[in-house]
Design a protein around this nucleic acid. Structure first.
Length: 468
RNA sequence: UCUUCAGUAGCUCAGUCGGUUAGAGCAUCUGACUGUUAAUCAGAGGGUCGUAGGUUCAAGUCCUACCUGAAGAGCCA
């Protein structure tokens, strides 16, 4: 009848009804004590904090007590009590303990003491059990919620773009091919090319590098949409800011011009960071203490300050002025050159000391679908540049004029017969529209203060690494 | 992909000018301790020095190649 229900530790730590019998289930973090009494720090993933289980050793079986080692999973029934010692307000006086799963201390790789992030990457299947990754993955969840909530509140529809695609229209990099062809016995046609008509889809297909083109189709019907899903790039990038599989958020809005797009991007990022500050206090405090003392200052700074907005051309002028004053760069600065990360960092971290939104880039260094400005030289692109992590958002107003879009695609070598369906949006009821892409893990890098993108996604996919 | 640095106990590292039997802290195990907070104290076990070659009387140490990891760069989100 009166079966005791499991209580989450996050809820238990709030309670003051001492004397009540409670039940918790979780994993042993540490155990210490003496001959009479043992102390177990128990964590169930609901919070960064542990609950202390007090065990009077005399009242328990010796064999059971031996199994209560770091990593073991247990159920504890006991009495919630006010703690007589410093360090915690409440604790549980254990009355009954059941071991669900032991963790052999001789082989269990996680210890009480600190591990390097590099080592934890090698045991990615167990690292969620650490304080650090528990905090990160709880924050990751909250950020995903924030994204959905922001767009939902602003009248956007969550639109699911396909994962498998036949187009490489954005030219956003090397793609992973998807095939069911027998790679040990590839049939070639008379031109010695692979015969994809035999393949599953009857044509060559790949994993998506962006949901943008599909999002544009949706925006031309639903008005305001966003995608939020996995994205794949087969680039041989080995940096702390790149993944072969990452999650991207891509809003697309009909009738938005470039300024609306910029406003949306700034409002969106601020909403997400504010959400983290309001809901992830404990986890952020832990990460701040362990990895990044300035974390709260940086997050609050972004929420409170207006991002700097300037054109590419103005940016080049600032960089040229800096060079004239003696600033040294490895790569040359001139109008028409793509900005290297040293240039972006100079603008964000040295010159403005604020997030910067750069707009109106030369058309030669941007994608074919961006709306051309009247000057004939620039396009309505926008990049949001953040301190430490660089480009967090890239977006643009899209070219809605059919002829201009087709000629630009031709100039940049995009075969228009592959994207007839995309071009149709400009043939039938075209409209001004804009959108951008935000790398979810890049946002998480900023919010958590982590330095390596492999530490903000559960199972990072990078060149030569897909073990877990 | 390029450049630089690194790889020694389960983890984090030290190891001098190439020279006898490769060390420490933590973790683990055993013992002590009546409330611990990364508990403390005493003791014990634990090593193919990333892999393969080479130089040398002698290689953890020097050389070459490869593998793996990290940082910076390129590409980008």
């Amino acid at each position: 009848m009166n079966k005791l229900q499991k209580t989450r530790i996050v809820d238990l730590l709030q309670r003051e009804d001492f004397g009540t019998e409670v039940q918790v289930k979780g994993w042993v973090r540490t155990r210490r004590g003496n001959k009479q009494v043992g102390f177990i720090a128990l964590n169930d993933g609901s919070t960064i904090h542990n609950i202390q289980i007090v065990v009077e050793l005399a009242s328990f079986d010796e064999e059971l007590l031996k199994q209560l080692t770091t990593g073991a999973c247990i159920r504890v029934n006991g009495v919630l009590a006010e703690s007589p010692a410093q360090g915690q307000k409440a604790e549980i006086q254990a009355k009954e303990i059941e071991v669900y799963g032991i963790a052999d201390p001789n082989t269990y790789p996680l210890q009480k003491k600190g591990h390097t992030l590099e080592f934890l990457r090698e045991i990615a299947h167990l690292r969620p059990r650490t304080n650090t990754f528990g905090a990160i993955f709880r924050i990751r969840h909250e950020m995903a919620q924030a994204i959905h909530r922001f767009f939902h509140e602003n009248g956007f529809y969550y639109f699911h773009s396909p994962i498998i695609t036949a187009s490489d229209c954005e030219g956003a990099g090397q793609m992973f091919q998807v095939t069911t062809l027998d790679l040990y016995n590839l049939k070639k046609n008379e031109k010695a090319a692979i015969d994809y008509s035999e393949d599953f889809f009857g044509r060559q297909t790949s994993l998506t590098v962006s949901g943008q083109l599909e999002a544009e189709l949706a925006a031309m019907a639903l008005g305001s949409v966003y995608t939020f899903g996995p994205t794949f790039r087969a680039e041989n990038s080995n940096t702390p800011r790149h993944l072969a599989e990452f999650w991207m958020v891509e809003p697309e809005v009909a009738f938005n011009e470039i300024q609306d797009n910029i406003d949306l991007a700034e409002r969106f990022i601020k909403y997400c960071i504010k959400w983290a500050l309001e809901r992830c206090q404990d986890d952020l405090e832990f990460l701040s203490k362990m990895y990044d003392n300035d974390l709260f200052d940086r997050l609050e700074f972004v929420v409170k300050n207006q991002f700097v907005r300037l054109s590419y051309t103005e940016g080049i002028k600032i960089l040229e002025a800096a060079i004239a004053k003696g600033q040294k760069f490895e790569f040359p600065v001139y109008w028409g050159a793509d900005l290297a990360s040293e240039h972006e960092r100079y603008l964000v971290e040295e010159h403005f000391k604020k997030p910067v939104i750069l707009t109106d880039y030369p058309k030669e260094i941007k994608s074919f679908y961006m709306k051309q400005n009247d000057d004939g030289k620039t396009v309505r692109a926008m990049d949001v540049l953040f301190p430490k992590i660089g480009e967090i958002i890239g977006g643009s107003q899209r070219e809605e004029n059919y002829d201009k879009l087709v000629s630009r695609a031709k100039e940049m070598g995009v075969p228009d017969k592959d994207i007839y369906w995309y071009l149709d949006t400009r043939r039938y009821g075209t409209a001004p529209h804009s959108g951008f892409g935000l790398g979810f893990e890049r946002l998480l890098l900023f919010v958590t203060g982590m330095a390596n993108i492999r530490d903000v996604i559960p199972f990072p996919r990078t060149p030569r690494n897909a073990e877990f």
